[in-house]
Design a protein around this nucleic acid. Sequence first.
RNA 1: GCCGAUGUGGCGAAAUGGCAGACGCAACGGACUUAAAAUCCGUUGGGCUUUUAAAAGGCCCGUGCCGGUUCGAGUCCGGCCAUCGGCACCA
Length: 849
Amino acid sequence: MNNARRKPYPFDRIEPKWQAIWEERQLFHAPNPGEKNFDSVNPKFYILDMFPYPSGAGLHVGHPEGYTATDILARFKRMRGFNVLHPMGWDAFGLPAEQYAIKSGQHPAITTRENVAKFKAQLKRIGFSYDWQREINTTDPRYYKWTQWIFLQIYNSWFNPETNKAEPISTYRGKNPDEVRLAYVAEVPVNWCPELGTVLANEEVVDGKSEIGGFPVVRRPMRQWMLRITAFAERLLNELDGLDWPQGIKLLQSNWIGRSEGAEIDFNIDNHQEKLRVFTTRPDTLYGGTFLVLAPEHPLVDLIVTGEQWTAVREYRERTARKSELERTDLAKEKTGVFTGAFAINPANNEKIPIWIADYVLVGYGTGAIGGVPAHDKRDLEFAKKFDLPILAVVRPTKDEPAIGFAGDGIAINSPIINGLTSAEARKKITAWLEECGLGKGAINYKLRDWLFSRQRYWGEPFPIVWEGGKHRALNENELPVVPPPLDDYKPTGTGEPPLAKAKDWVRYSEKALREANTMPQWAGSCWYYLRFCDPQNDQRFVGEEAERYWMGGEKPGGVDLYVGGTEHAVLHLLYARFWHKVLFDLGYLSKSEPFQRLVNQGVILGEDNQKMSKSRGNIVNPDDVIDQYGTDAFRCYEMFMGPLEQMKPWSMRGVEGVARFLARAWRLLMTENQAGEWELSAKLEDVDPDKAQQKITHATIKKVTQDIESLSFNTAISQMMIFVNAFINAEAIPLSAMRTFLVLLNPFAPHLTSELWEKLNARFQDNVGDITEEKWPGYDERFFVEDEVEMVVQVNGKVRDRIKMSILATNDEMKTAALANPRIQQLVDGKNIRKVVVVPQKLVNIVV
RNA sequence: GCCGAUGUGGCGAAAUGGCAGACGCAACGGACUUAAAAUCCGUUGGGCUUUUAAAAGGCCCGUGCCGGUUCGAGUCCGGCCAUCGGCACCA
């Protein structure tokens, strides 16, 4: 014998064996409609994981948490007769791969290939039942051909506000279609990250730093591709309602979209032709507007600034431009600003009010200009105090508190047209008045910005666009895919010029036309991968119509039936994908307007020290080490036993051991070790009827496990199976039928162990049963739980004082009589006045004295 | 500041308004063993108390804090506190 630690059961032999069998027999392949073995009678179930970004570090224990949950559900649903689509793929374009490539000097295509191989081997080792025939990779030209194709659909569409839908650009009747395309080029202030040498989307900037790498980001105007996601703001917001998503994620997304309702008001400028438009949610406070503030970048500043103020204004604007996003949004700092020298007229009272510029007004939101109402807005109040501007209260609070600084709703005062009205009424009335006078109108504003869609990086999808005579134009579909040139030097240039521009031959598309050299962002590939999974090999279409209708359509809810992944994508992937989906839906390519009907977020797994896992803390758990020691079935079960799926929870090696012990006990329930140290089927196993108690616990376990899997309460399902094993472990005879049932219940959790035991049972009992993976899920019969006697709890004033065995058939009156006749209870209520007796049938009697 | 989630033993946790702490970990005791590991059995929220003692009971307190609804509250309602997460000069 070697001196390696003896395994509690031979998982190291069993697990690779069954993985090889599954692969060989392709048991988890889901045929499409029209394909061989497709069964049109079964309902479909599409269960999707967020596909991983294959980093160099390999899987960590957080990935398999969600993957195990979906795998259990997928196996369960198959056993319940569903056609289950459960695919996996690789989101492999993007910054980290490229950063890593630059650092290691290896081409990103090579490192990506290696990382994918590593991830795939790790996932296979955990025994996930993915349909690997559907594997996709976003960096594969056969895949991104269609990413580029979808971009063309977006480019060749516009948003028709009348139909509230995306339509082909050919239906646009205006002069210049380029103004309304859903993909357009604009010179806008963007998030430029010098360190990464690229621009970033708002969603990719966190606290003024790049989400990836944490490098400083500055605002800088650049010519970039944008996607008109803002046109869909209202639908993206409204259609959240119908989705079965965690409330928190919906809220995060609706806050990001940030709808606010108010009015746009035009102010005349003293001695100028131009009008100044501001957006406000509080038109009812118009009378209290004692100044206007423009964003320093506001285009009107140049026109209205007076000679004396010009130097101060210019200096202020330069200072603002130099500031990083982080400095500018620092809340702690004092308000700053400069007077432009110009005045506007408040349309409500015709007062002349000064126009200032200040960096607390953002050029990107609303109209980039605000009416300063210092009495009822905290920021305006700070500003007015700092620069000694007049403060006029126009809302009286309904409770006893000072009017100055009151930002809530109250009663309008000092406002002739609306005096005495509630704020809500006042808003309505003054908006109507503004509209009548042509001074403004009701308006809705969104925080959501258009999606900055180009990157100055190498490792991404090239745009299917060429430039000719200063104008962009789409390539033909038959020119796809546009494959990037092989580049030895793919480093960012740092100047904002994309690395692809270095490939002069590639860029030269024709005599007159040059290729677009920017690439698409990381998110492009993941915006539609769930569609490609439905029909991954199709080279005629991004997804076949029938396949799309089957997997993404169907009865309500339809679409992806369950999508599991982390919260970190709440406003990135999940918003972008919904946007693309809606465009494709409007253009008639898809069955449903929403992609993901039900979303579940798995909780973060912390290190044993209760801290976030990180290299620097040294508390990272590597799945491979756990599997080496305890086997993958134990790993899977532990991930699920830790606690509720959606909860944040710390890892515990001891906990893994406990679950491993449970599996070993289940193994020994059926197997014994002989003299030679070999495992063989236990002699206690018999083809006999279970006794009453065994029957009861078997059916109770079927019920609990079935319901708990449906509700994703995997931890309590495992608890119940532990109770089952504990109940049988010392039985004289182990009834075969109960064991068969149990193995099927445990199979989704521990597929290798149960497959092996099932095979052993088949060999001994030869009752013509096939592979466990193809078994039907067992049903349960409530009759087996019902007992002749129940234990009735007797309470006095809500406190448990005794328990009495009662027949299940006992009436309420009989229960009451029995309780009152009980000597202990008699003692307690003796001499007291019984005021009330509450009876809960078959459960409890409460005597109130 | 705003929004959201969470708060139960030494730890991870469980409980359709009806016996709080299932299941697991850790700890302690025992069996097996030359010994250890493994395995199996038992005890395990806190305090008080009855019995010579053990066995077995009994009483009180206990689900972040304060109040309410109810025969009965971890669960429902109101108010606070703490931790975590998100958003944040969004007009």
